[in-house]
Lab assay of single mutants.
Amino acid sequence: TLDDSATICRVCQKPGDLVMCNQCEFCFHLDCHLPALQDVPGEEWSCSLCHV
């Protein structure tokens, strides 16, 4: 889900339109996540760090 609060991106440390991982609660810009996300993920989304 998009989170436009004062939360910062885990990768670039900047605020903005972010998606939050449902497991670790880290936030990412779509372009900062590795691999980059093309679209906003669904409600139950886990980042690539949680899939390691």
Rank of each mutant, 00 (worst) to 15 (best):
P41V: 08
E44A: 08
P35N: 08
A36E: 13
V40A: 06
G42D: 13
Q13H: 14
D4G: 08
V52W: 01
S5H: 15
K14N: 04
L49V: 11
L18N: 02
I8L: 13
C50D: 09
D39A: 09
H51Y: 03
H51M: 13
D4I: 13
Q23S: 11
A6V: 05
A6R: 07
V11D: 03
T7A: 10
D39W: 03
D17T: 11
V52R: 15
D3F: 13
A6L: 09
C9Y: 00
C47L: 01
A6T: 04
L18A: 03
Q38N: 14
V11I: 12
L37E: 03
W45Y: 09
R10P: 06
Q13E: 14
P41T: 02
T7Q: 10
P15K: 09
V19Y: 09
G42Y: 04
K14S: 05
I8Q: 14
D17Q: 09
C9E: 00
H29S: 01
M20P: 14
F26Y: 10
W45K: 10
D17L: 06
C24V: 00
D3A: 01
H51D: 13
V40F: 13
V40P: 15
E44P: 05
C21R: 00
D31I: 03
R10I: 01
V11L: 13
T7R: 14
D31Y: 07
V11G: 08
L2C: 09
D31K: 03
F26R: 12
L49M: 13
L34I: 06
W45C: 07
Q13D: 15
E43N: 11
L37G: 10
H33G: 09
T1W: 01
D17N: 08
H51W: 05
Q13P: 01
A36P: 14
N22R: 11
G42T: 15
R10F: 07
E43Y: 03
C47G: 06
G42A: 13
L49E: 15
W45F: 06
A36Q: 02
I8H: 10
C50L: 01
C21L: 01
D4T: 14
G42R: 11
H29L: 00
C9W: 00
L30T: 07
C32P: 04
C9R: 00
L37Y: 07
D3S: 08
S5N: 04
C24S: 00
C50Q: 06
D3C: 03
R10N: 14
E44C: 14
V52D: 07
G16H: 08
C12Q: 03
D31M: 05
V11A: 10
M20F: 09
D31A: 08
Q38F: 05
L18E: 05
D3Q: 02
A6S: 08
A6I: 01
E25R: 10
G16Q: 04
T1H: 02
L2D: 11
E43I: 11
F28N: 01
V19E: 03
C50G: 07
V11C: 05
P15D: 08
Q13A: 06
Q38H: 07
S48E: 12
H33R: 11
D4M: 14
I8R: 14
H33K: 08
F26W: 05
M20S: 11
K14F: 04
A36D: 05
Q13W: 12
V52S: 14
D31C: 02
E43G: 11
L30A: 10
T7S: 11
C21A: 00
D3G: 04
V52K: 05
S46K: 15
S5E: 06
C32G: 02
K14T: 06
Q38M: 04
H33M: 09
P41H: 03
